[in-house]
Design a protein around this nucleic acid. Structure first.
Lengths: 194, 194
DNA sequence: TGTGCTGGAAACAGATCGGTTTCCATGAAG
DNA sequence: CTTCATGGAAACCGATCTGTTTCCAGCACA
């Protein structure tokens, strides 16, 4: 437990990790202990545990996206940029420390779709769909909106396979996404006709 | 709370519903109250709450499969029989009482893949894959094993969309499954060349 | 040296957790 | 009527839950 970061950052980090690994039902005591922060401080920084759940999900969004999405400097064609997301997910599954999409898992545990954490989860899923949509528009796909949703669905399906520990079938997410892109005519190297 | 069924049946029914609706963290007190059974009786019938979780999941398997899979009397070609699963899932989502696949959701909440409930979840997912596989073999698909896994993945992805309450896109599961079947050459009305 | 603020340690509160036990109403068998 | 097994109601256990409060060590600043 490094004391370098501020108590708020330490709490958000510990929350992001423990809520993901042990579920949102982990106690505040364990959380504060892991963060090296007293409960008093925690309740001064966050109104409630529910707010901490939402804030920790939101705070990890950018890092999570950087981990999944290819950067702007990656100038490969849209199809490759899209498949990169699935390749990176596959790599996390293969590494063995992937317990499903943190946003979907948290939404599953919270049940209530109006919970602030569920709202963040919905927002993040939309951002993934938006990324796919942008790439598909660049590729000149015929129905980018629907295809983007389909890709997001495959992403979450692959995550579910990891959760239930189904017999691993390496690269099944990327394979399926590629099949869908093929069917939609988004081919390797194809770019918009701009 | 009907007193007609045996205490065991009442418990399994209540558990199946409440664990699904409120999550496996609901207390045994609330559960027994809903089932009209005392805790004493519950702990005579089941060794622990964990065992009740697993048994309730297992007991609901057949009914859940009957709800999703087309029956043997449905003699339409494999492609239609496969798409029926997604159509029925879509119907449940549209009806508004669908909170995701009970087996995946429970596995997400339990975290531990060795938990008896997680084992049942894994088993059920395999059964869905097996159903797809049988139909794909009947249809003479080229790689039925992989395609069956892909379809299961789409099923779980569609379930995840329902959980996070993503903007509904009617029939997206069936549409995607159909696109995949098209790409694999499993066409409407096609049957095995037996 | 004295003052005031920050924040951790820990006790506390009231509720609930999984699980066990006691007690008693009921109803069938002799 | 007596006897005995069933099973519900509810108390009880120790642990843990979210959230609050008290107390005090440390430290910047005058």
């Amino acid at each position: 437990m490094s004391t370098s970061a501020t108590p708020r950052e330490r709490l958000l980090d510990a929350a992001g990790e423990l809520f993901y690994r042990d579920g949102v039902n982990i106690g505040v005591d364990a959380l504060c202990k892991a963060a090296g922060v007293s409960k008093k401080s925690m309740y001064q920084l966050f109104r409630s545990k529910d707010e901490l759940i939402a804030e920790s999900l939101a705070s990890r969004g950018p890092a999570y996206q950087t981990m999944l999405h290819p950067g702007a400097e990656d100038d490969r064609p849209p199809r490759e940029r899209i498949l990169t997301v699935f390749d990176r997910q596959d790599a996390m599954v293969a590494a063995g420390n992937y317990l499903g999409c943190p946003y979907v898992s948290t939404a599953v545990e919270l049940k209530n779709p109006e919970h602030p954490g569920s709202v963040v989860a919905r927002h993040f899923k939309q951002q993934l769909t938006d990324f796919f949509h942008r790439e598909l528009v660049k590729a000149g796909a015929e129905d980018p909106a629907m295809l983007a949703v389909q890709l997001t669905m495959i992403f979450d399906g692959a995550a579910a396979r990891a959760v239930v520990r189904a017999q691993p079938l390496g690269g099944i997410g990327a394979t399926t996404a590629a099949a869908l892109l093929d069917a939609a005519g988004v081919q390797a190297g194809e770019l918009a006709l701009s």
